[in-house]
Protein backbone atom coordinates (compact mmCIF):
# COMPACT_ATOMS: atom_id res chain seq x y z
CA UNK A 1 0.00 0.00 0.00
CA UNK A 2 2.73 2.43 0.89
CA UNK A 3 4.50 1.69 -2.37
CA UNK A 4 1.65 3.51 -4.05
CA UNK A 5 2.35 6.67 -2.10
CA UNK A 6 4.76 7.60 -4.86
CA UNK A 7 2.64 9.74 -7.22
CA UNK A 8 4.25 8.33 -10.36
CA UNK A 9 3.74 4.74 -9.30
CA UNK A 10 0.21 5.67 -8.24
CA UNK A 11 -0.51 7.09 -11.69
CA UNK A 12 0.92 4.01 -13.40
CA UNK A 13 -1.09 1.66 -11.22
CA UNK A 14 -4.40 3.50 -11.33
CA UNK A 15 -4.20 4.37 -15.04
CA UNK A 16 -5.63 1.01 -16.22
CA UNK A 17 -7.65 0.55 -13.02
CA UNK A 18 -9.84 3.62 -13.38
CA UNK A 19 -11.67 2.62 -16.61
CA UNK A 20 -12.27 -0.85 -15.13
CA UNK A 21 -13.87 0.74 -12.06
CA UNK A 22 -16.01 3.06 -14.15
CA UNK A 23 -17.23 0.16 -16.27
CA UNK A 24 -17.96 -1.97 -13.21
CA UNK A 25 -19.82 0.94 -11.60
CA UNK A 26 -21.94 1.44 -14.72
CA UNK A 27 -22.78 -2.27 -14.98
CA UNK A 28 -23.55 -2.65 -11.27
CA UNK A 29 -25.67 0.51 -11.27
CA UNK A 30 -27.64 -0.70 -14.29
CA UNK A 31 -28.19 -4.17 -12.80
CA UNK A 32 -28.94 -2.74 -9.38
CA UNK A 33 -31.47 -0.29 -10.78
CA UNK A 34 -33.16 -3.03 -12.76
CA UNK A 35 -33.30 -5.29 -9.70
CA UNK A 36 -34.58 -2.44 -7.55
CA UNK A 37 -37.55 -1.92 -9.82
CA UNK A 38 -38.38 -5.58 -10.33
CA UNK A 39 -38.46 -6.84 -6.73
CA UNK A 40 -41.99 -7.05 -5.29
CA UNK A 41 -43.19 -4.06 -3.29
CA UNK A 42 -43.03 -4.30 0.50
CA UNK A 43 -46.24 -5.35 2.26
CA UNK A 44 -46.00 -2.36 4.57
CA UNK A 45 -43.96 0.30 2.79
CA UNK A 46 -45.24 -0.42 -0.70
CA UNK A 47 -43.11 0.92 -3.51
CA UNK A 48 -41.27 3.37 -1.27
CA UNK A 49 -39.08 0.50 -0.13
CA UNK A 50 -37.21 0.98 -3.41
CA UNK A 51 -35.93 4.34 -2.15
CA UNK A 52 -33.89 2.37 0.38
CA UNK A 53 -31.76 0.90 -2.40
CA UNK A 54 -30.50 4.41 -3.08
CA UNK A 55 -30.75 5.89 0.38
CA UNK A 56 -28.76 3.36 2.41
CA UNK A 57 -25.81 3.01 0.00
CA UNK A 58 -25.62 6.79 -0.44
CA UNK A 59 -25.59 7.32 3.32
CA UNK A 60 -22.97 4.59 3.83
CA UNK A 61 -20.73 6.12 1.19
CA UNK A 62 -21.28 9.60 2.59
CA UNK A 63 -19.90 8.30 5.88
CA UNK A 64 -17.21 6.21 4.22
CA UNK A 65 -16.00 9.11 2.10
CA UNK A 66 -15.63 11.22 5.22
CA UNK A 67 -13.63 8.46 6.87
CA UNK A 68 -11.41 8.43 3.76
CA UNK A 69 -11.11 12.21 3.96
CA UNK A 70 -10.25 12.11 7.65
CA UNK A 71 -7.65 9.36 7.35
CA UNK A 72 -6.10 11.04 4.30
CA UNK A 73 -6.01 14.32 6.24
CA UNK A 74 -4.20 12.55 9.05
CA UNK A 75 -1.52 11.22 6.70
CA UNK A 76 -1.28 14.60 4.98
CA UNK A 77 -0.78 16.37 8.33
CA UNK A 78 1.56 13.93 10.00
CA UNK A 79 3.69 12.81 7.06
CA UNK A 80 3.16 15.93 4.93
CA UNK A 81 2.38 13.67 2.05
CA UNK A 82 1.21 15.38 -1.13
CA UNK A 83 -0.71 12.35 -2.39
CA UNK A 84 -2.62 11.99 0.89
CA UNK A 85 -3.58 15.64 0.63
CA UNK A 86 -4.79 15.12 -2.93
CA UNK A 87 -6.80 12.12 -1.71
CA UNK A 88 -8.43 14.15 1.07
CA UNK A 89 -9.32 16.92 -1.32
CA UNK A 90 -10.68 14.48 -3.89
CA UNK A 91 -12.93 12.71 -1.38
CA UNK A 92 -14.72 15.89 -0.31
CA UNK A 93 -16.95 16.61 -3.29
CA UNK A 94 -18.16 13.02 -3.97
CA UNK A 95 -18.70 12.57 -0.24
CA UNK A 96 -20.76 15.74 -0.02
CA UNK A 97 -22.78 14.64 -3.05
CA UNK A 98 -23.50 11.19 -1.54
CA UNK A 99 -24.48 12.76 1.78
CA UNK A 100 -26.78 15.23 0.02
CA UNK A 101 -28.33 12.35 -1.93
CA UNK A 102 -28.89 10.43 1.31
CA UNK A 103 -30.59 13.46 2.89
CA UNK A 104 -32.69 14.06 -0.20
CA UNK A 105 -33.85 10.45 -0.67
CA UNK A 106 -34.43 10.09 3.07
CA UNK A 107 -36.66 13.12 2.89
CA UNK A 108 -38.59 11.64 -0.06
CA UNK A 109 -39.06 8.43 1.89
CA UNK A 110 -39.97 10.20 5.11
CA UNK A 111 -42.87 12.12 3.59
CA UNK A 112 -45.08 9.06 2.83
CA UNK A 113 -43.73 6.87 5.66
CA UNK A 114 -43.32 9.22 8.59
CA UNK A 115 -45.68 11.86 7.28
CA UNK A 116 -43.00 14.53 7.29
CA UNK A 117 -40.11 15.61 5.07
CA UNK A 118 -37.81 16.22 7.95
CA UNK A 119 -37.58 15.64 11.70
CA UNK A 120 -34.85 16.84 14.00
CA UNK A 121 -33.94 13.44 15.30
CA UNK A 122 -30.37 12.54 16.13
CA UNK A 123 -29.58 10.60 12.95
CA UNK A 124 -30.94 13.21 10.57
CA UNK A 125 -29.28 16.05 12.43
CA UNK A 126 -25.91 14.35 12.66
CA UNK A 127 -25.96 13.53 8.94
CA UNK A 128 -26.82 17.15 8.23
CA UNK A 129 -23.82 18.15 10.36
CA UNK A 130 -21.73 15.70 8.32
CA UNK A 131 -22.86 17.51 5.19
CA UNK A 132 -22.00 20.87 6.79
CA UNK A 133 -18.54 19.54 7.64
CA UNK A 134 -18.00 18.69 3.98
CA UNK A 135 -19.07 22.21 3.04
CA UNK A 136 -16.85 23.77 5.71
CA UNK A 137 -13.90 21.67 4.55
CA UNK A 138 -14.33 22.77 0.96
CA UNK A 139 -15.00 26.40 1.90
CA UNK A 140 -11.93 26.57 4.14
CA UNK A 141 -9.75 25.03 1.46
CA UNK A 142 -11.02 27.36 -1.20
CA UNK A 143 -10.75 30.59 0.74
CA UNK A 144 -7.11 30.49 1.79
CA UNK A 145 -4.94 31.80 -1.03
CA UNK A 146 -1.77 29.93 -0.06
CA UNK A 147 -2.69 26.48 -1.32
CA UNK A 148 -0.49 24.53 1.08
CA UNK A 149 -1.68 26.46 4.11
CA UNK A 150 -5.28 26.07 3.02
CA UNK A 151 -4.71 22.34 2.61
CA UNK A 152 -3.27 21.94 6.10
CA UNK A 153 -5.92 24.09 7.78
CA UNK A 154 -8.60 22.05 6.01
CA UNK A 155 -6.86 18.84 7.10
CA UNK A 156 -7.09 19.93 10.75
CA UNK A 157 -10.79 20.63 10.27
CA UNK A 158 -11.19 17.28 8.52
CA UNK A 159 -9.67 15.51 11.52
CA UNK A 160 -11.91 17.39 13.95
CA UNK A 161 -14.91 16.33 11.89
CA UNK A 162 -14.06 12.66 12.43
CA UNK A 163 -15.64 13.04 15.88
CA UNK A 164 -18.99 13.26 14.12
CA UNK A 165 -18.69 9.84 12.44
CA UNK A 166 -19.39 7.65 15.49
CA UNK A 167 -22.17 10.06 16.42
CA UNK A 168 -23.80 9.51 13.02
CA UNK A 169 -23.28 5.75 13.19
CA UNK A 170 -24.55 5.19 16.72
CA UNK A 171 -27.10 8.01 16.90
CA UNK A 172 -29.90 5.53 16.19
CA UNK A 173 -28.81 3.38 19.14
CA UNK A 174 -28.03 6.17 21.62
CA UNK A 175 -31.15 8.17 21.01
CA UNK A 176 -34.29 6.21 20.44
CA UNK A 177 -36.02 8.43 17.90
CA UNK A 178 -37.77 8.22 14.58
CA UNK A 179 -34.99 6.94 12.34
CA UNK A 180 -34.85 3.13 12.56
CA UNK A 181 -31.62 1.43 13.66
CA UNK A 182 -29.49 -0.57 11.26
CA UNK A 183 -31.36 -3.66 10.09
CA UNK A 184 -28.98 -5.21 7.57
CA UNK A 185 -25.76 -5.57 9.53
CA UNK A 186 -27.31 -6.78 12.74
CA UNK A 187 -25.74 -9.58 14.76
CA UNK A 188 -27.42 -12.88 14.04
CA UNK A 189 -30.08 -12.91 11.37
CA UNK A 190 -30.33 -9.91 9.07
CA UNK A 191 -33.45 -7.85 9.64
CA UNK A 192 -33.81 -7.43 5.90
CA UNK A 193 -36.19 -9.70 3.98
CA UNK A 194 -34.08 -12.03 1.78
CA UNK A 195 -36.06 -10.86 -1.26
CA UNK A 196 -34.47 -7.45 -0.96
CA UNK A 197 -30.90 -8.67 -0.51
CA UNK A 198 -29.94 -8.90 -4.24
CA UNK A 199 -30.94 -5.33 -5.18
CA UNK A 200 -29.65 -3.94 -1.90
CA UNK A 201 -26.24 -5.62 -2.09
CA UNK A 202 -25.86 -4.82 -5.79
CA UNK A 203 -26.61 -1.16 -5.18
CA UNK A 204 -24.26 -1.08 -2.20
CA UNK A 205 -21.49 -2.54 -4.36
CA UNK A 206 -22.37 -0.16 -7.20
CA UNK A 207 -22.10 2.88 -4.96
CA UNK A 208 -18.85 1.63 -3.46
CA UNK A 209 -17.28 1.07 -6.86
CA UNK A 210 -18.70 4.37 -8.11
CA UNK A 211 -17.09 6.20 -5.22
CA UNK A 212 -13.78 4.43 -5.88
CA UNK A 213 -13.96 5.47 -9.53
CA UNK A 214 -14.85 9.07 -8.70
CA UNK A 215 -12.19 9.26 -6.02
CA UNK A 216 -9.36 7.82 -8.10
CA UNK A 217 -10.27 9.97 -11.08
CA UNK A 218 -10.32 13.07 -8.89
CA UNK A 219 -6.95 12.18 -7.33
CA UNK A 220 -5.46 11.63 -10.77
CA UNK A 221 -6.86 14.96 -11.96
CA UNK A 222 -5.41 16.67 -8.90
CA UNK A 223 -1.96 15.15 -9.52
CA UNK A 224 -2.10 16.29 -13.14
CA UNK A 225 -3.22 19.76 -12.07
CA UNK A 226 -0.22 20.04 -9.78
CA UNK A 227 2.09 18.87 -12.54
CA UNK A 228 0.72 21.57 -14.80
CA UNK A 229 1.26 24.17 -12.08
CA UNK A 230 4.86 22.99 -11.60
CA UNK A 231 5.54 22.99 -15.32
CA UNK A 232 4.07 26.46 -15.64
CA UNK A 233 6.17 27.75 -12.77
CA UNK A 234 9.28 26.21 -14.31
CA UNK A 235 8.51 27.77 -17.67
CA UNK A 236 7.97 31.15 -16.06
CA UNK A 237 11.38 30.83 -14.41
CA UNK A 238 13.07 29.98 -17.69
CA UNK A 239 11.45 32.83 -19.59
Amino acid sequence: MFGLSNPQRFMRFTGPLTPVLWTAAAVLLAVGTWLSFTVPADYQQGDTVRIMFVHVPAASLGLGAYAALGVSSFFALVFRHALADAAARAAALPGAAFTALALFTGSLWGQPMWGTWWVWDARLTSVLVLFLFYLGYMALRASIDDEQKGARAAAVLGLVGLINLPIVKFSVDWWNTLHQPASFLTPGASGLDPVYLPPFLTMLAAYGVLFAALWLTAIRTEIRRRRVLTLRARKALEA
Binding site: V129, L132, G136, L140, S143, G150, V160
Partner: peptide, 22 residues
Protein backbone atom coordinates in the same frame (compact mmCIF):
# COMPACT_ATOMS: atom_id res chain seq x y z
CA UNK B 1 -7.23 29.76 14.11
CA UNK B 2 -8.28 27.62 11.15
CA UNK B 3 -9.51 30.60 9.17
CA UNK B 4 -6.24 32.53 9.60
CA UNK B 5 -5.15 33.99 6.29
CA UNK B 6 -8.48 33.33 4.61
CA UNK B 7 -10.34 35.74 2.42
CA UNK B 8 -13.59 36.84 4.10
CA UNK B 9 -12.49 35.20 7.32
CA UNK B 10 -15.55 36.22 9.33
CA UNK B 11 -18.02 34.45 7.08
CA UNK B 12 -15.75 31.42 6.86
CA UNK B 13 -15.47 31.17 10.66
CA UNK B 14 -19.25 31.14 10.86
CA UNK B 15 -19.52 28.30 8.32
CA UNK B 16 -16.79 26.28 10.01
CA UNK B 17 -17.87 26.90 13.59
CA UNK B 18 -21.67 26.86 13.54
CA UNK B 19 -21.92 23.08 12.94
CA UNK B 20 -19.68 22.66 15.98
CA UNK B 21 -22.01 24.94 17.97
CA UNK B 22 -24.91 22.53 17.51
Amino acid sequence: ALALGAKRGGLLIAVVVLPLFI
